Simulated scan of single mutants.
Amino acid sequence: MRAVVFHDPGHIEMNAQATVPKVAPGEVLIRVEACGICGSDLHMYRANAHRKELVRVDPEGLEIPGHEFSGVITAVGEGVVGYNIGERVVGVGMGGMADLVPVPVNPFQLVHIPDNVSFVAAATTEPLADGLQMIRKADLKPGDNVVVFGVGIIGLGVIQALKALAIDIGKIVAIDVSDERLAVALEVGATDTINPRRQDLLSTAKAICGFLPISYPEIEPTDISVVFECAGYLKHMTGPVPLESALRLVRPADGRVICFGAYEDRLNIDLMPMITKQISLFGSNGYAAGDLSLALQLMSEGEVDRERLISHQFALADVREAFEAQGNGQAIKVMLIPNQVTL
């Protein structure tokens, strides 16, 4: 079969003679119709970061990435109930950038696709589920102003979910260095945007969200209750890293930072704002049981438009171009399409 193989940073290619996976007990085999390139895949591609967690190693030692995919079940392992050959499913597991991939049957890794949801939209289910968990962790209150730092597929999903769930909050401020992504953020529900390459981040945020009449520990801190930090850290970043900016943005005492973005490497960061303002920093990784189904339900009911976020589609043979497109700063979501005849 055909499969994408990761060799070293910058070296990724399609192998047309990969071994067809065997389906084990408790698994199904999926013919992949669409597989997204995740930000963590980019970290691996650029800096070898998180490599062991992001690939499926086949019997010949080939390292196959891809963990956000959709497709059709072609084989069912012993003991599997509730899933049958021919059914459309979302899969979450490593090795999805291939013609075929095995997936264990459990609510965290496999779920049926509603009939009116396309394969490409369904392949964005996992990132939307990630956003649902972040929102739950944020424990939002009526009137809270929030910031979404980094509006790729994850950050945009947070904004879409905030609107779809009709959460009663104040401002939704999107921050990114890409004007193209910021424009999409406004389309899907952000009230305001900031591009820190062209605007002073703190003063612009204060002008948008207002400030609190507090003189200590910070003079008139910005009235932002929650920052969803979806940007992470890239080695080529200049200026303060997003997490440090998030700590400076959020209000004292009850301010919360939900940290999701992945990190390519260790970094130095000033944590004093967290201490002096006594704010809370929460890590978020993945999603809870049921979030995949809820994400698909929101798509099926027309509450979120995920196809709007698919900016590029590539065949497996063009995987290097696909990764370069995903990393250019303008793309929202790049999809690999292994088995569809037309893109």
Rank of each mutant, 00 (worst) to 15 (best):
L336F: 07
R2Y: 13
M1C: 11
K171S: 14
V111D: 02
M299C: 07
V23I: 15
V341D: 04
H236Q: 09
S70G: 04
L62Q: 07
G77L: 10
R320M: 12
N195L: 03
D41Q: 05
C38N: 04
D41A: 06
V101M: 08
G143W: 11
V72M: 05
M94E: 12
G150H: 14
C38K: 00
P102V: 14
A325H: 14
D115M: 02
V101N: 04
K52T: 03
G261K: 12
V226C: 09
L296P: 00
I219K: 14
C35A: 15
T222N: 13
K206P: 05
V105C: 07
R2I: 06
E87H: 03
G329W: 03
S215R: 12
A331D: 06
D305L: 12
D115L: 10
V177T: 15
K141V: 03
E78Q: 09
V227I: 14
A207I: 01
I154A: 11
D8H: 13
E321D: 13
E324C: 04
A16F: 04
I310L: 06
G95M: 05
M97I: 01
V188E: 03
Q330N: 12
G79P: 02
A49Q: 03
P25H: 08
M272Y: 10
L140C: 13
G143R: 03
D265G: 03
G93S: 14
S40R: 08
N116G: 09
V76I: 14
A253F: 05
G290V: 11
A288Y: 02
D176S: 14
S215W: 11
